[in-house]
Amino acid sequence: MSLVNMPGAGANEVVLRVENLCKVFRLPGAHGQAFKALNQLNLAVTRGRTLAVVGESGSGKSTMAQLVMKLQRPSAGRVSLRLDSGMRDIADLPARELYRKIQMVFQDPYASLNPRQRIWRIVSAPLCNYERLSRDERQQHALHYLQQVGLGEAQLHAFPHMLSGGQRQRVNIARALATKPEILILDEPLSALDVSVQAQIINLLLDLQRDLGLTYIFISHDLAVVRHFADQVLVMKSGDMVEWGDVDQVLENPAHVYTRQLLQSVPGRLIDLPVRTQSASVVADG
């Protein structure tokens, strides 16, 4: 398939490209069954845009995030990232360089902060991998990033358990911003939050994208949020790409049965049920 047809590709500069990415897990045991968590994934992400990856549990969306973050090794395929020198395979990149470009916000704001560390320590920890900082400098940097996400001095010396869920997710985002990355992978950043807090975090993410020119890969199961938040969407099911395209196209005119099923499952009247028509978006299989 030509790269132009990859999800997310457009006239703009591609900053992250995933080609034929596969991940096979072997279940424990001598003759453990092989389990395909991710099968032949292709995608390209454009600078300053948001690509949403939609799917249910077991669809491989979190595996994809971990492969892109190099937290796991792919079974096949590659992920390349745009550096000043051009596209480079992340397998060849040292961790220090990779994590300056790309960062991740984790799903569970409770589990992703070390309960025994104060907030300033958590937020400034990534920086300590790059330069030697005194305690004062670390606190200054931490305060800067906390202010960027709408927190302040009051939270600097707090422990995570003293903060609300929304505040913790802000701390998570502040930590991800600390290395000044260009790409943020947002792994279900809203699913553990209350509705009114979700809206605050969505606003924060929108503001940050506008101000800092960030590129997002937004992993979610919430189609209403995806429609509001993303430019492109990729629908996944059991490790396979099912459908991709611009958000409007895919969600207004889903071409694949599974996408339609997902849309119909959204409770209430959040999204009008799509009309069954031929869509312009690309369908991966049948």
């Binding site: 973050m69 937290l71 961790a95 220090r96 990779l98 994590y99 300056r100 960062q103 991740m104 984790f106 799903q107 569970d108 589990a111 992703s112 902060l113 070390n114 309960p115 025994r116 560390q117 958590i122 920890a125 990534p126 300590c128 991998n129 790059y130 998570n172 930590r175 991800a176 600390a178 290395t179």
Partner: peptide, 26 residues
Amino acid sequence: QKTYVMAAFASGSSRLRVLWSEVLPN
């Protein structure tokens, strides 16, 4: 197994640093 340990790896920390600053204090 904790997410914050993964988060530390994802911000470029070496194994030694993760041990020292995330695991050991707990």
